[in-house]
Nucleic acid binder design. Structure first.
Lengths: 142, 142
DNA sequence: ATACTTATTATAATAATTCTAAACTATTGA
DNA sequence: TCAATAGTTTAGAATTATTATAATAAGTAT
């Protein structure tokens, strides 16, 4: 069986040409059970480890941004040194482990519903993100 | 009346030497009624506009980080291209206007209380931040 | 004042990201 | 099928935000 067909079709449907590079990146990102959180650097490393061919950094950036634009990825704002991306594009929130720099999905029962009263005239809400920063419970308070 | 005395004392109490540069930055940041949201670049521009003397970028970064460490500023995570700082260090949340790149404080009645059920063993919650991204209500969707 | 410690500065270094322009590849339609 | 075209990839340069360095300057305690 050929996994690629699925991604080829999805890419084509989205108006993105199914190139070798995009298909490879799809396989890495979307052939998995669980949500995947990654930085461009993470992804870049995985590509060079798992693939024989290389994909240039510029292409990785282009592809990730194209996927984000099409709604297949969400970008998560953490401390402003890096961008994190999330294959789970549904509305959900995150824990961020400051010790390990890892993002963890927040389940529905981890947080109550966040309701916003939008008073800003002429503005609509595009997203609501909750970020819960956690760290080890030891007393090493910096 | 000499505004400086106040900041000189506060700096000294915090274990920070009250230097000319730090006092100037205090005046810009804390001599105001309302919360102030800014980037390093914003602040840097304000300094060169309002002051005769210049303060080097490195000093601005050092000072802002020192103030943050002492709890006089909060850092806010937006899209990862820039760091935003906030003179309001209480627990509160933000609207971010994607048209103007401006942060707006969320009042208590704009949002319900966010309650977290922390299941992560050995981890304690350091912060909970809600960021509500808004944009103009026109149909210019990108 | 003197010695000591800490801060400031210009500059270089780093890191993430975007830009550029040439080479390449998928698609279209004759 | 094959050339024309439109979209992609690529290496490398450029940009931007931020941090590091190491010399100079300025507070502070004695």
């Amino acid at each position: 069986m050929n996994f690629n067909t699925e991604f080829v079709n999805k890419l084509r449907i989205s108006g993105l040409r199914p190139t070798k590079q995009r298909i490879k990146i799809c396989e890495i990102l979307f052939n998995r059970e669980k949500t995947f959180h990654f930085t461009i650097n993470d992804l870049s490393k995985m590509i060079s480890e798992k693939l024989n061919e290389k994909i240039s950094l510029a292409t990785i950036y282009n592809t990730i941004h194209a996927f984000k634009k099409k709604g297949y990825l969400k970008e998560i704002s953490i401390n402003s040194d890096k961008s994190y991306f999330d294959t789970n594009t549904s509305i959900h929130h995150h824990f961020y482990d400051e010790d390990t720099n890892q993002l963890i999905d927040c389940n529905e029962d981890d947080i109550n519903e966040v309701k916003i009263n939008n008073n800003l005239t002429g503005k609509k809400i595009n997203s609501v993100e909750v970020l819960i920063k956690v760290a080890s419970d030891n007393q090493n308070q910096n």
